[in-house]
């Protein structure tokens, strides 16, 4: 198979890579670019562990081809903190112990970031529906919801 040359922007940085036409964006991020924050939980769009933002839309990177990233703006978990300065969502996930094993966490953080960007004051129900595409087998979701609520309050005050 001939490789596809892709030129894109990831977390504000210009990035170029060659990938196979059937390679997913998740595989490109993890295996070619060393950005292993996005996880593969299912590979079929069900768990959200691979969530990234492409041109301001939350998507599962396991259901996007690497070739489709041409000319796009991609945001991954690696771009969420500014140096040592954690994003309020990251800080609140820590404070509320909103993770145990942590495999779902990058996906939840990206999905929550997208949720708050579009709806800065979500109700509990809106948070639960908004994050329904992300699965967590450890926390029981409650602490995640609390952390997002708390982060929303902090971010509104900022």
């Amino acid at each position: 198979m001939a490789g596809v040359a892709v030129s894109t922007t990831i977390n504000g940085d210009h990035v170029e890579y060659l990938c196979q036409p059937d390679e997913t964006l998740l595989e490109v991020l993890r295996d070619r670019l060393g950005l292993t924050g996005a996880k593969e939980g299912c590979g079929t769009g069900d768990c959200g562990a691979c969530s990234v933002i492409v041109d301001n839309r939350l998507v599962c990177s396991c259901l996007v081809l690497g070739a489709e990233a041409e000319g796009r703006q991609i945001e991954t978990i690696e771009g969420m903190a500014h140096g040592d300065q954690l994003h309020p969502l990251q800080q609140k996930f820590l404070e509320h112990a909103a993770l145990q094993c942590g495999i779902c966490t990058p996906g939840f953080l990206i999905a929550a970031k997208d949720l708050l960007a579009k709806n800065p004051s979500p109700t509990e129900e809106e948070i639960r529906f908004g994050l329904a595409g992300n699965l967590c087998r450890c926390t029981g979701y409650d602490k995640i919801v609390r952390a997002v609520q708390d982060a929303a309050n902090v971010m509104k005050g900022a």
Binding site: V54, R57, L63, A111, L115, L131, A132
Partner: peptide, 9 residues
């Protein structure tokens, strides 16, 4: 159809 993630696509 699907989740927020699926809706975006």
């Amino acid at each position: 159809i699907g989740s927020k993630q699926v809706q975006g696509r």
